[in-house]
Structures are given as C-alpha cells and as structure tokens.
Design a protein around this nucleic acid. Structure first.
Lengths: 156, 156
DNA sequence: TATTGTTATACTCTATAACTATA
DNA sequence: TATAGTTATAGAGTATAACAATA
C-alpha cells in the first residue's frame, strides 16, 4: 500500500483506530442490550461478569474503571437482589464481594447470551476467530498496564 | 470457563466473544479517558465524533443508541459550549444538529488523540492492521453480506 | 391521526471530598 | 499516618410518559 512517510505510523492510522472504536461501540451496545434483558444495568452486568472469586471493593472498582465510592451503591443494589454477598478477610477493613448461587446463575445467563449473539461466534469461521483472538491479545498485551490495584485516577 | 458443548460451532465460542468484549471494554475506557482530557463526557464525545453532517435529533439518538429525550440535554450542553448549533429543515418539526467550527476543531483533536494512543496503531504491524480491519468489517457487516457468490447458475 | 422534539420524573452512574474504622 | 470502604453532594446519562408543534 502507498506508504506516506509524513507520519512514522501510517497514512490511515486513524482509520484503523476508528474502526476499532466503532466495533467497540457496537459490542458495547450489544452488551448493554443483553444486560437490559436480564434487568441489569451495564455496570452491574460488568461487575457480575468479572466476579470470578471473592474480590475486594477497591479491586472491583479497578476492574470497572470507576471510583471506589461507586462500587458501594452498585454492589448494594446487586445485594438487594441476591446476586452478591460481602464478607470480610483477615484485614477487617477489606470487604470481599462474592457471587451467590443466584449470581453465578445470572452470570451463566449473561455468558450464554453473549456467546449466542456475538458476531464473533456467528459471523466468523473458526480460523478467523483464532486470528481475531491473536490480534486482540496483541492489542491488550501492554495496552492496559496490568490490572492496577487501585491507582486508577485521571488528571485534573 | 463454561465449556458448554451444547453449541454445534465451537467448544470455546464464549472465549472468542469474551475476548471481544474485553477488548471493547479496554477500548471504551481509553476513549472515556481521552474524552475526559478534553472535558467531554463520553456521550458528548461520541456525538461529536459522529456528527459529520447536519443530523436530525432522532437520528443522533439512533447513533448514540439512546432515547431521543436524552439528546435534548446532551446537545444543549454542547451548544452552551459552542460546539454545536441547531437549525431547521424543510419539515419544521425536525431540528438539525450541526458542528460549529469549534466543534470541528475538537473533533479533530479527538481523532488525533485516538489515532495517537490506540493500540491498533501503536502495537500492530501494518499487515496486522489490515487483517484486523478485515475481521472487524466482517463482524459489523449489517446487511446480510450476500454470503453466496456461488450462484450455481447451472441453469441455462 | 402520526411525527418530531421537549419537558417532567425517577433512577443509576460518576467523581470529589469528608468521614469511619481499621491498620 | 495510611488505607479500605462509606456517606454526602452535585452533575450527567438513561428510559418512560405526557406534552406541544407540525405534518
């Protein structure tokens, strides 16, 4: 392809990034719709999908990329509906969030809906899926500087 | 990982979809951070990035995948800051939203930040970028892509 | 009568800051 | 003093329903 040497990268550097963002938008919209079908808000669904094991509130905030003060409310609403419970670790300050049986059930529903409707499973051949996984792995290998404990603050 | 084998396609169908969602999450977080640097909320930034030409409020709502009542407020805040203006079309009910010069300027800033920081441009080789674009195109092809070029025109 | 967009309402998410309770 | 989580507060996004203006 015509290699414009104006930029160290590529003449259509933005086109690639834009395509990725558009795909991310579509994926997010699909996810929000699935969450809504199960009467979950998007952050609630994201929390459930990431709660593989008892996790401290602060770490959950890191996963959701939001302030820890938000997790209090999100977890409270999920607790009211019986999807999560909270216990304490050895450090009495730490509150460990955990899925209940009902929470694990709705997580399975989420996973199933995602697998069933994702274009990654419905529109791609198996070799294409493997190629996609490889590319996505490479994208995220250092893009996210490892799941930082809690130090996720933006400027300003 | 639920290796539920009830799917005729692939035992790890969910793994592919999950990977895509995780990548979408990371991409969205990066986008939100860029928007925040320009003092824009995520929906505001998405609106600006999509406003290529004068667009009716309802169509903007379609692009943002939200109810039209929300666009009133989002557009009002962007209007207060001089990024968008509204005019009327031939149908007096329709309100056409349009970027101002200042709005086009901040859109260019958004695009540049995205291109500069996206892992799609910083972590991928050029062939990989092209492969990624091809896969994403296939993922998002809305209209049934007429998957059959093999027309079987043995008739005569 | 149907539509486009607005307004009213209620809820959730969000960050900041101040607070508590542990450490 | 430092850390984990909560509470208080304010602003923004969100959907639903009712409304005005126009078609």
């Amino acid at each position: 392809m015509p290699s414009d040497s104006r930029h160290p990268t590529d003449p259509d550097a933005y086109a690639v990034a834009r395509r990725l963002h558009d795909a991310a938008d579509a994926t997010r919209n699909a996810f929000d719709r699935i969450a809504a079908e199960l009467d979950l808000t998007p952050p609630q669904a994201r929390l459930i999908l990431r709660l593989f094991e008892p996790t401290a509130m602060g770490d959950v905030a890191g996963h959701l990329a939001c302030d820890k003060s938000n997790v209090t409310g999100i977890a409270a609403r999920l607790g009211d509906r019986g999807f999560v419970t909270a216990g304490h670790g050895s450090d009495r300050r730490v509150k460990l969030l955990e899925l209940t049986a009902q929470g694990q059930q709705i997580r399975a529903s989420l996973e199933q809906h995602i697998a069933d409707t994702s274009p990654a499973t419905t529109r791609l051949t198996r070799p294409e899926r493997r190629a996609l996984i490889r590319l996505l792995d490479k994208l995220s290998s250092t893009a996210t500087p490892a799941p930082r404990p809690t130090q996720q603050q933006s400027r300003r």
